[in-house]
Design a protein around this nucleic acid. Structure first.
Lengths: 255, 255
DNA sequence: TCAAGTATACTACCATGGTAGTATAAAAAG
DNA sequence: CTTTTTATACTACCATGGTAGTATACTTGA
């Protein structure tokens, strides 16, 4: 259980040029982007969150206050606050006086998340059809262009992020940003699963194609068709419980 | 939106019309059992959460670490952790080095919450129809009986809780507990609004009646009818923006 | 009278030490 | 060898002191 990957991410965040030993709070705050007040808490939170979502921290990994605070060169107080936050996200489990662990991927939650996502995305896309502004459509087009580049370069992790952004843009265009955040929250385990199977379990060409069709239907104001394609699109994520439990038994829980 | 802008809004209304002496949590803390296993953090969290939801702490009220920790007789550390938690719930806004305030009720979020709730509840009730076990139906019946008692006693706050429980039971029966939590989270401001208008703005008799009809339709497996009634039921909560802003200008924000 | 600068009293943020509870392994008893 | 007891090394939890940043009242200067 090493945190080397986490440290790599820290370096990337801070322009990749900071000596690991030299990272202090002062450095972090000194390099903050004007307008964004990066507190230690926020920094540790966003870093750890991403590490968990990208499976740099595997499900089940132990994360002690002590160890994390040493790695991040901050005290245990902000780390504890981050744990509370991540616990609410469902990304870590806190066992008092025993330890804090990265949550296992919950297969039941996976199914439920997909169910609600299909319900909500279908409703949203129906609202979106014909209502999107030119700017919205342009944003979606740019996103698709980026997706194509990622597809050609087989940069699937970034493609996953763009996928999320594609759907998020549609929600935002309808004034449903909070809804999108909630759906994303419910599908947080699905996200980890998709990262886990990035290279071998996805038909990225089909996904890309469906995105194109959705955009086309939206542009033409064909709500029903967009809804239909979206349904197919979301049902593509097949969760083979038995296979997953066989391949990665230590990552999953089913309750 | 800048912090400053929000602060100005709060400042004006806070000094203008909110009685500082009304912010007392002493009564609630009396319920803490000394031998209880609940951690200080959990106790403070659940107490404050309920206080905010029940409007014992009005929107816009200042809540300093110092003050809260003294009232709860705990240190500032767990209080800070609670603030992080409440902040994620959307119940408080933290302005670093400035203060922490009970969130204003967001009228946009209100509309969005109602929208997604109607979408999801309709889908759930369709799944529920004909699938509920005898135990589920019995639970719903007991709930309705309790609602009738509350109605006769004009105990509307408890009735509101039973209302939530009624809907929650249906979700749980379908294995959609997490979805329910999400919907509740998105409707957290609606809850506060309902508490605010408890006595004068609701037709509790109609609500009770609709609950009865929903249960009946569920028992008979009439999914379509249950769905229709649920739609009416949820659309009953009318949000008159202008009226609200006129009556309680200091409680709301619209962005 | 009024604007600009200063002093003071706050705030949330972070570091650190101590504590009760828990798991593990060694030692003792059967 | 097995079970029980004890010792030790952890854990998250909480209390407390100090700090940088912010707002406000006060003083100063025109």
């Amino acid at each position: 259980m090493t945190f080397r990957k986490v440290l790599d991410i820290i370096k990337v965040y801070y322009h990749g040029s900071i000596d690991r030993e030299a990272i202090t709070i002062q450095d972090l705050t000194a390099r903050r982007v004007p307008g964004s007040r990066a507190s230690a808490r926020e920094f540790v939170y966003s870093t750890l969150r991403q590490s968990i979502l990208h499976l740099d921290l595997k499900p089940g990994t132990k994360m002690s206050e002590q160890e994390i605070s040493e790695q991040f060169k901050v005290s245990r107080t902000p780390v504890r606050e981050v744990f509370v936050h991540l616990n609410q996200d469902g990304l870590v489990e806190i066992y008092p006086q025993r330890g804090t662990y990265v949550s296992l991927i919950n297969l039941r939650a996976l199914e439920e998340g997909r169910w609600v996502r299909e319900i909500v995305e279908k409703a949203v896309i129906e609202e979106a059809a014909g209502r999107l502004t030119e700017e919205d459509l342009h944003k979606l087009e740019s996103n698709l262009a980026a997706q194509e580049v990622c597809y050609r370069n087989k940069n699937y992790l970034e493609m996953l992020g763009l996928d999320d952004e594609f759907h998020g843009t549609i929600f935002r265009a309808c004034g449903k940003e909070r809804t999108y955040e909630m759906v994303k929250q419910l599908n947080i385990d699905l996200y980890r699963l998709r990262v886990l199977r990035l290279s071998h379990d996805f038909r990225w060409d089909q996904i890309l194609n469906q995105h194109r069709q959705i955009l086309q239907a939206l542009r033409e104001g064909k709500g029903e068709e967009a809804k239909r394609i979206m349904g197919e699109h979301l049902r593509m994520v097949i969760v083979e419980k038995d296979q997953l439990l066989a391949d990665y038994p230590e990552y999953f829980v089913d309750l």
